[in-house]
């Protein structure tokens, strides 16, 4: 299956790699003795939304967390292979994970605002990285981030209230605002809408589409409809392997691989 799937994504040429924002080659991930990812190679283009889909436990979240080295935090986890960000290998080049994570932000499955005020939530990143030289500058960053996250109208009068007091959808957009406040280049989103109701989901999806102008976005989702709605490219994971990757439209209308077809037609999931 590994061999069979190669041609499907093997079209990722050197040309692709040069134009890619993030590119991964032969990434293996082990949790202890268990292999969670097998030889994953993919190119993620700038200013596009790349969706990673697949049944649960297929390794899509694991792969996402490799992109900003969040897997380092798990004692038993080991990553092999290479991942480049703008042509720089993030695992071997001595790139500081602290800096890496400032450039590759992350939004999580469940909204997880800090138990601080809305303002402090957004200001957290800029503060630790020393991005603002003055209070006014920090205010500016917070306001524009909230604005970009489409939250400003709802919270501008209550910046000093607890972030945990917002509704679920608002919390998630607050988390997005928090992530973009450090002006990352890439934003990783790990099933950002799975804990939200349909209306909040729609708002976040809209937001993702807007954010694409400025950021490169990788989103893991278990909802094929969501992938179809928000992404330009889609990768399909199955049992730790990237089975197929291509234009979203092509994946959903004309999948090359039988497994992909089975998944998107709902034969398994």
């Amino acid at each position: 299956m590994n061999v069979a799937s190669k041609p499907a994504m093997g079209q990722a040429t050197l040309e692709d790699r040069r134009s890619a924002k993030v590119s991964a080659r032969d990434v293996d991930v082990f949790y202890g003795a268990k292999q969670a990812l097998k030889s994953v190679s993919i190119d993620i283009r700038p200013n596009e939304v790349t969706a990673l889909i697949g049944p649960s436990g297929c390794g899509k979240s694991t792969f996402l967390r490799c992109l900003n080295r969040m897997n380092d935090l798990i004692e038993t986890c080991r990553v092999a292979g290479s991942i480049w960000l703008d042509g720089e290998d993030i695992y071997t080049s001595g790139l500081d994970p602290v800096l890496l994570r400032a450039r590759v932000g992350m939004v999580f499955q469940k909204p997880n605002p800090f138990p601080k005020t809305i303002y402090d939530n957004v200001a957290y990143g800029p503060r630790i990285h020393g991005l603002a030289r003055s209070r006014a500058e920090l205010d500016e960053i917070v306001m524009t981030s909230l604005e970009k996250a489409g939250l400003i109208d709802e919270v501008k009068d209550r910046l000093q209230e607890q972030g945990t007091g917002l509704s679920g959808g608002q919390q998630q957009r607050l988390c997005i605002a928090r992530a973009i406040a450090v002006s990352p280049e890439v934003i990783l989103m790990d099933e950002p809408c799975s804990a939200l109701d349909p209306i909040a989901t729609a708002k976040v999806e809209e937001l993702i589409d807007e954010l694409r102008q400025r950021f490169t976005i990788v989103i893991v989702t278990h909802s094929m409809q969501q992938a179809a709605r928000v992404s330009q490219r889609t990768g399909f994971f199955h049992l730790g392997e990237l089975v197929e990757c291509g234009e979203t439209e092509q994946i959903f209308t004309n999948p090359r691989h039988k497994l992909t077809q089975g998944y998107i037609t709902g034969r398994f999931g």
């Binding site: 900003n68 935090l73 602290v98 994570r101 932000g105 992350m106 957290y124 992530a179 450090v182």
Partner: peptide
């Protein structure tokens, strides 16, 4: 303290 809070902070590049 939930893991998610730690991850959020680390994910923003905090030490």
């Amino acid at each position: 303290v939930p893991r998610s809070l730690r991850e959020a902070s680390l994910g923003l590049g905090a030490t």
